[in-house]
Nucleic acid binder design. Sequence first.
DNA 1: GACAAGTCCTGAACGCGTTCAAATTACCGC
DNA 2: GCGGTAATTTGAACGCGTTCAGGACTTGTC
Lengths: 230, 230
Amino acid sequence: MNSETSHKPTKTAKGEQTRALILDTALDLLEERGYEKTTMREIAKKAGVSLGNAYHYFDTKEHLIQAFYHRTHAEHLAATAPALAKHSDMKNRLLAVLRLKISTLAPYHEFAGVLFKTAADPRSPLNPFAHESEQVRHDSIKLFEEMVANTKARIPPDLRAELPYMLWLYHMGIVLFWIHDTSAKQARTYRLIDRTVDLIDKLISLASNPLMRPVRKRALTLVKELREFA
Amino acid sequence: MNSETSHKPTKTAKGEQTRALILDTALDLLEERGYEKTTMREIAKKAGVSLGNAYHYFDTKEHLIQAFYHRTHAEHLAATAPALAKHSDMKNRLLAVLRLKISTLAPYHEFAGVLFKTAADPRSPLNPFAHESEQVRHDSIKLFEEMVANTKARIPPDLRAELPYMLWLYHMGIVLFWIHDTSAKQARTYRLIDRTVDLIDKLISLASNPLMRPVRKRALTLVKELREFA
DNA sequence: GACAAGTCCTGAACGCGTTCAAATTACCGC
DNA sequence: GCGGTAATTTGAACGCGTTCAGGACTTGTC
């Protein structure tokens, strides 16, 4: 909650306070009613500030979503720590990280559609590859870096180097699936996670086989380019 | 142009005419100025109809995009025919299909961002997995089905059955990359196509190896579920 | 404690997508 | 032709996100 460190700072203490007030009010309303049904006028009114003032702190309505990213990411990170301490093998770690991701996001399922809608727009500052989201993206990838770094499995260095980014991309795919998943309690997403993690584990072993070196090298070059593209 | 067969028909001939007029005007303006800068008022005015009338034929501004889908898909399909006749191996076919996809879409690069933005919203009728887009999606996949069906490479039947859908998904990924690609003439996208097609060709051979059967089975079950989910 | 230089805050106004009741026009059986 | 029904068309109105000129307030300086 108090981790909103990534916005341009206000000049006075009062400003900071107002900003936080608006943001908390906004996130409450957004969670309660969804994105479209929450208006900037409502947010301002409930926060007890003028409409124009809300726009003083948040350039657009979409910018409020950036804060949402930070909040859920922080929650996810916190939830993740004990699980990572408990398991030392990558398969179980990956499983835990992904399940926690979904359970963290669960309250926002209805709202998440808009989130990804705006995120998919290349011109939006919110798209995960945009400059403005670099901080969150980096933090997010870092989680997978640590996951990979501490695992003892025999993984060739070239693969090990790109694996965090690949897993991050994979995790984005899972979230995308979850957004479209209307099954009860998002059961399908959890099932997909179980299956894909299993498969990924197998594929990593496979790709680590010396015989696979040429294909692996080629694929990794590709991933590297993709990563640098962003 | 005359292939807009997928909308609920108007009741009079005049209506059909008006609808076409609005649509053509809209697509012209959208291509010229992009999505946000084109207003419904402008479209109506240039088409010589009232604002309300435009809304009589197109429920929302986004619905105009559906027509865009149809148009570019038809163009792509037409452009694709000679290339498919020329090549009989899958690698070159896939290469041709994808390159033509990008060159067909090229004029709309700026506009395509919004297109995918709305397409990513699970509640939008335009998202490629939605019911309303079933027709276009099906047609689009059909192209890959034919591509796979006519190829003589030794591909196990289980893989062959799912390959069209997998290639379609892959092709969506390429389009997504293209949308974010700001390099001159979208050179990076073309390079990505060259590389990935090459890799995919290798991976298909690999996956066809009898030793790979267990992993392949498992992966294909997953893909099948994914496909049926949509 | 007065002044200046910001910063914070206000609310009216703009243009947009969208809706709707009512007016107009086309169609069809007689 | 004629009337009636239904489709087409209109334009005013609504609520929204966003902008902006200006007022109120804070902070630092002497």
